[in-house]
Design a protein around this nucleic acid. Structure first.
Ligand SMILES: [Mn+2]
Ligand SMILES: [Mn+2]
Ligand SMILES: [Zn+2]
Ligand SMILES: [Zn+2]
Lengths: 140, 140
DNA sequence: ACTGCTTTTGAAAAATTTTTTCATTAAGCG
DNA sequence: CGCTTAATGAAAAAATTTTTCAAAAGCAGT
């Protein structure tokens, strides 16, 4: 199912700003901030407004089409999200980001933590950080 | 070893703002934003400046005495950090935050991902989100 | 305790980021 | 096509973070 279809079925309209944000993120392959999306987006859609980028990201994230990435220094970067439970792997050098499916190895850990703390775990945030192949080589 | 000693050994001075930030976080038990730390800190140290809160957090985080917490809606909350590799478990309702030691169950997953992506994984970010005991009960 | 050197502080200003407001535009549906 | 309502973009406002700089305070060595 296309992202347009997913967005539409969730009750949202397919608009130019939303299309532009998706297109920019598709081409990026690394997390982009609203500001960056805005600047690149304007080359596609001259009259794009920064506010619409913010608003688009909010909706697209809610629908699960886009994901925010947490980094040491910034947490305002967005990438395209594949459907279903995924985690991300990102290169600390060039920012390249790759998703990988859930691989739920955490159940043991979670059970253990629940036991010891009395918490009821509902969700988790997992990101792996490292160096992508190209950056391993060009390790100046 | 006390936090003062750890800070000092790392080459930093023990100052009033840093002491206040630590004290505020000690009493909090949940992530506090710089603004919140500032407001609470002023009750201890009348002339505390917001800038010093920002600067203190930067240093304390660098030394590993304090940790930034990533949440759905905000990533500007700080908690006290225990020494060594820990993860956090936080309540989505009241914000209560608990640390738990590394429990490195991730090595399998990491090896698998490294294999498939060519990345070299160096670090990770893991947070568990759920409901703490009190909030499970008062589930209005 | 006192001195001198250096880091750190707090106020103010500046820069950046995010949110709100509101008149206008344009999606989507018949 | 026309209607209805969601969505847009400009502008302003609010909130957050960083920079600047003179004054204060930490600390090492007397
Ligand atoms: Mn998972
Ligand atoms: Mn770990
Ligand atoms: Zn974050
Ligand atoms: Zn890379």
């Amino acid at each position: 199912m296309s992202w347009e279809e997913r967005l539409s079925r969730a009750g949202w309209r397919i608009t130019t700003p939303r299309r532009v944000v998706m297109q920019v993120l598709q081409r990026a392959g690394r997390p982009l901030s609203p500001q960056e999306i805005y600047m690149r987006g304007r080359r596609i859609h001259r009259s794009l407004g920064l506010v619409s980028v913010y608003r688009s990201l909010e909706v697209l994230e809610r629908v699960g089409l886009v994901r925010r990435v947490h980094q040491e220094d910034r947490c305002d970067g967005y990438i395209l999200a594949s459907p279903g439970h995924h985690h991300i792997l990102l290169c600390r050098r060039c920012g390249r980001t790759v998703e990988f499916p859930g691989a739920e190895d955490l159940s043991g850990l979670i059970a253990q933590v629940e036991q010891r703390t009395g918490f009821q775990v509902e969700d988790h945030l997992l990101e792996l950080i490292g160096l992508c192949s190209p950056c391993q080589r060009s390790k100046s």
